[in-house]
């Protein structure tokens, strides 16, 4: 009787080892709760600079003077550059392979985490500058604190961005003073802008669970801790601008959690049009 061909006995133990090793390699680490909060906070940073950058860029070609047109476009450029860094890091932290572009162009309004103040319509030139000043004063304090982040990636982006934002704040402070302490007409417009925007400043300093979690890990400051320094700058500049700070402490909120005003959808419709109509389009 012919003998059957030799069967090689598989090394079961070896197979099990390699299977285990394989499983180990392909296992995607589940983001812990802390990482989720970190991702959210990065979106808050990147979405604020993205939406404000887009808003300010709407002035391009429409400003009252050439120098101001150029300055506004440059401020936008800085903000969009910072967005690339924040949203790039957000995609990295999220770990799902989304790039800064994916996050900017392929999310809908309810996924945006920007403060409401940055999506407010531009209004007149004075209104745009008042919004810029109120945000810059906050942005400057925020970046100063972020430079001490326990995450080196956050700290280095903040160090880079804060140099640029120092110029934004310097410029918007100067212009708010010049226009506030200017003609009757310019003063009236600046006071109207302040009255209209004041109720959108409180949201900057409201902390939720995500803020507190990230603050506890030393990654970002608790927003409440930034209020005093912001107020000092704002009172100083607005005082010199001879403007009156509204007494109301009412504050609109929601942007940080994806509840936006009707204006954000219109911004996204314009900003995202190309990628929505021609997915993956490049130039």
């Amino acid at each position: 009787m012919p003998s059957l061909p030799d069967m090689t006995t598989p090394d079961v133990a070896e197979l099990a080892r390699s299977a285990a090793a394989h499983t180990h390699h392909t296992e995607i680490p589940k983001p812990d709760a802390g990482q989720e909060a970190f991702f959210e906070v990065l979106l808050r940073l990147g979405d604020a600079t993205l939406i404000l950058g887009h808003r300010v860029s709407e002035w391009c070609g429409h400003s009252p003077a050439l120098e101001e047109d150029i300055a506004l476009a440059n401020v936008s450029l800085d903000l969009i550059g910072q967005t690339q860094m924040w949203l790039g890091l957000a995609g990295e932290v999220e770990g799902k392979g989304r790039s800064a572009d994916d996050l900017a162009y392929l999310r809908d309004a309810w996924d945006f985490r920007n403060l409401l103040i940055v999506e407010r319509p531009n209004g007149d030139f004075g209104h745009t500058l008042m919004r810029q000043f109120l945000f810059d004063a906050f942005h400057f304090e925020l970046l100063k604190a972020l430079q001490g982040s326990s995450d080196p990636r956050v700290a280095e982006i903040a160090a880079k961005a804060s140099k640029e934002v120092a110029y934004h704040l310097e410029r918007s402070s100067d212009l708010v003073i010049r226009l506030g302490d200017g003609t009757d007409e310019s003063r009236r417009r600046m006071q109207d802008a302040l009255d209209a925007l004041w109720a959108y400043t409180g949201e900057m300093f409201v902390a939720d669970d995500k803020d507190r979690e990230v603050a506890a890990a030393g990654i970002a400051p608790n927003p409440e801790s930034l209020r005093a320094a912001w107020e000092a700058t704002v009172r100083d500049v607005l005082g010199e601008a001879t403007l009156t700070i509204p007494e109301s402490t009412f504050s609109h909120k929601g942007g940080k959690n994806g509840v936006h005003t009707e204006h954000l959808g219109f911004i996204l419709a314009e900003m995202q049009f190309l990628q929505r109509a021609y997915p993956g389009c490049n130039w």
Binding site: E67, A71, Y167, R171
Partner: peptide, 12 residues
């Protein structure tokens, strides 16, 4: 004339 010039790195 202006804190921002022809490029982000320049003033006028």
């Amino acid at each position: 004339v202006s804190q921002f010039g022809s490029t982000p790195c320049k003033a006028s």
